[in-house]
Design a protein around this nucleic acid. Structure first.
Length: 275
DNA sequence: AATGTCTCCAACCGCCCGCAC
DNA sequence: TGTGCGGGCGGTTGGAGACAT
């Protein structure tokens, strides 16, 4: 197993920064290790960084005794060993923040990660790909499509807000789209005599697979919209498309590319800081 | 119990940019 | 100005474990 992760390189650069001569090392045919890090390697890296500080990752790789390249050392430190790195489930607040920030910045993972203390760009990227993109696939739509963005905006995010509020007993400032959404759905329903099933607020259960969000069944119509079942979704998407959300949301203040106001973003960041 | 499939995520890869020389 | 290097970033891969058959 290990052998498949190994590759040979010659180290010919100057090694004066760690007291080794180039000659000494170039004589060694250094075998650089790849793959999962061991406890011993973690200890070596932590000890080295605690003495010399972060940065100069190629020097770390050369001087710490690790048979890893600089990039690998940097990644291991940033994603795992660095103090205050948080592991484990992404919280509801964090999910909400990720959805909002992604709507603003797109796949700028490192920029998004800056707003989530202790989380790494890699973790957020993985969350997005394994949860959000997965949901888009099950809905048979592109993750960047308007349909999916509407699903996020009108179903996923409101459910997150509700769950955050019910779990914390704290009200998120009321100038977000959710309160407007409730009024808008009501008005839309009265105008059109129908309601987009995704926009219904009476949701009786949740998917067990993901923390949030999509309605399992809709008690009003006794019709099951199991959103984890892509076979059903294929046809319902076409039906949902007949609801023209765009002019509707513009007329009700839903326009614009961002899901949240800066005030709400600040509120969320405060909540995260309190965790 | 054995085998196949799926999911998650740690780690790697390639590209890009800024800086020093 | 051109070149090489270090570091950062986003995309992708592949292994381990969970789950289904």
């Amino acid at each position: 197993m290990d052998s498949m992760y190994k590759t040979s390189i010659h180290v010919t650069r100057s090694l004066s920064d760690c007291g080794l001569s180039a000659t000494n090392v170039s004589e060694q045919d250094m075998v650089m290790k790849k793959g999962p890090w061991t406890e011993d390697e973690d200890t070596l890296l932590m000890n080295y960084v605690s003495v010399h500080g972060e940065g100069h990752w190629n020097s770390v790789a050369r001087c710490s005794g690790l048979k890893r390249n600089g990039k690998s050392c940097r990644l291991r430190w940033l994603n795992y060993l660095r103090p205050n790195v948080r592991h484990g489930n992404i919280t509801l607040q964090e999910q909400l923040l990720i959805l909002d920030l992604h709507s603003r910045w797109g796949n700028r993972w490192s920029k998004i990660a800056e707003q989530l203390p202790g989380r790494t760009d890699n973790e957020i990227k993985n969350y997005w790909r394994t949860r959000v993109v997965k949901q888009a696939k099950q809905l048979k739509c592109d993750v960047n499509s308007k349909q999916f963005r509407d699903t996020l905006r009108f179903v996923w995010i409101p459910r997150l807000i509700e769950r955050i509020q019910s779990s914390s007993g704290t009200a998120i400032p009321n100038n977000n789209s959710y309160g407007q959404r409730q009024t808008a759905i009501k008005a839309h329903s009265e105008t059109c005599g129908t309601t987009n099933p995704l926009m219904l607020s009476e949701v009786s259960s949740y998917s067990s697979e993901v923390d949030v969000l999509l309605p399992h069944s809709l008690s009003e119509s006794n019709v099951s919209y199991d959103l984890m079942d892509s076979a059903e979704l294929g046809s319902t998407w076409q039906e949902w498309n007949c609801y023209d959300i765009q002019p509707f949301e513009q007329s009700n203040g839903f326009g614009g590319s961002e899901l949240w106001t800066d005030e709400n973003l600040y509120f969320l960041q405060q909540q995260l800081a309190d965790l």
